[in-house]
Design a protein around this nucleic acid. Structure first.
Lengths: 228, 228
DNA sequence: CAAATATAATAGTATTACTATCATACTATA
DNA sequence: TATAGTATGATAGTAATACTATTATATTTG
């Protein structure tokens, strides 16, 4: 993503924080170190107390930025999807062929993030891992409908919308563009998880990427009719 | 599923419990009521204390059956996948055509469970909902590799193995049978979730089922080559 | 009937997920 | 430069969670 990102800021729903973490050094440190810690110990074991200890700050100070760790997770994952959206729009913008466009979008959405942009306090490599391991937990809750109404998932929804449109552009007769878009995003993460923890449940490995699998799936499905 | 299930017991890894809940009335009540409660309040809000209160038993008594609620969830979901496996094997056993076989298997794995078999203390309708809403949480943990080694996911893995084999029988040239099998199971659950909570992220609704979407996806993918 | 086993009752601990209060330091402006 | 406002830190406290331990009582079985 090179230098362009320097000037780009990702707009996050401001109901997700009490005080904008971008507005102070402490705020940025909260983001930076929480990404590291959630990665290391997992979301369940991560607490604001531990975070405070590690950043040499006070638990109560962290609560001035985020109501609870669930909102922090929503903040982090929203940032991630916003970053994905930016990359997708930027990279597909100039492509004329709708097939090439979709191909590129799938690549961006399903590839493993391997380089940290290093322009901000946000480590995208680790954030990608957090999304793989923790994203489902942000919506598999009893509060999901209320939080959806509050707009906490809006970036993710917009992203799937865009991907769905690209699918339709490739095949306007295809009946399940939105479901397929959801499948790409969600199963993209899942195949990465399987590769790491359940290699016997996936064909993805060092040589075969989730991107290849999903690209093959999508392009074998579109512009085809079932014939017996 | 009718009367056949009466005689069938699903074998669960006995490391998942301290004392087999099938071995006593209290154990069965723990299973029965925990299914209800996890459904109502969600896994996060569910505790052994609340369960004890509801079944008029003691928190400490429940700990004599399950070490913690995570193991209980693994027990319940293992049971579910065992039940799925039973249905799948039973229903596909006599089918000669490999296409028909796969079709049937996909139907069984991705349909919404609407009827409780009523032969046991286990309500399959509610259990299906639990699996949709909570299953990911059982493996998205830092302990997943250790627990996988202990065999806690063995039924699920066997099920995906079987489904993968059926895919290969339909198309022996297809390169991603295992990934596709994983996608069917996991995305089957996910499409049900989306239908309920994020209707704008799926094409599934009252008329279109996740089964239809996934069946279409699978059969449009198999026995096809990408051609430009 | 005694012994073994299952369950219940009670208490206690460390940790979590906060909330509240007060002190202090730093910052912006009149 | 004094002062008011804002940010952070320190400390304390609460209710709930996720257990463990102990003892009592009830039930089953040999």
């Amino acid at each position: 993503m090179d230098r362009l990102l320097q000037g780009v800021t990702i707009k996050i729903n401001d109901k997700l924080f009490v005080k904008n973490p971008e507005s102070s050094e402490l705020g940025k440190r909260i983001i930076e170190i929480s990404i590291q810690m959630i990665n290391e110990m997992g979301f369940e074991n991560f607490t604001f107390k531990k975070l405070g200890l590690k950043i040499g700050s006070n638990e109560s100070s962290i609560y001035r930025y985020f109501e609870n760790k669930h909102k922090l997770l929503l903040y982090l994952t929203s940032w991630y999807w916003g970053w994905m959206e930016y990359q997708m729009v930027f990279a597909t913008n100039s492509i004329k062929s709708s097939k090439e466009k979709l191909l590129k979008a799938i690549l961006i959405m399903t590839r493993e993030v391997k380089e940290d942009s290093a322009f901000s306090h946000i480590n995208e490599v680790l954030l990608n891992k957090i999304v793989i391991n923790e994203y489902s937990k942000s919506y598999l809750t009893k509060e999901v409908d209320a939080e959806n109404k509050e707009g906490f998932y809006i970036i993710y929804k917009r992203l799937i919308g865009r991907l769905g449109e690209m699918i339709t552009e490739v095949d306007s007769d295809y009946q399940y563009p939105t479901s397929l878009a959801s499948t790409i995003l969600e199963n993209g993460l899942h195949q990465h998880f399987l590769k790491e923890h359940f290699p016997s449940l996936t064909d993805c490995n060092d040589k075969v990427t989730p991107t290849q699998y999903l690209t093959h799936l999508v392009f074998n499905t579109l512009n085809k009719e079932i014939d017996e």
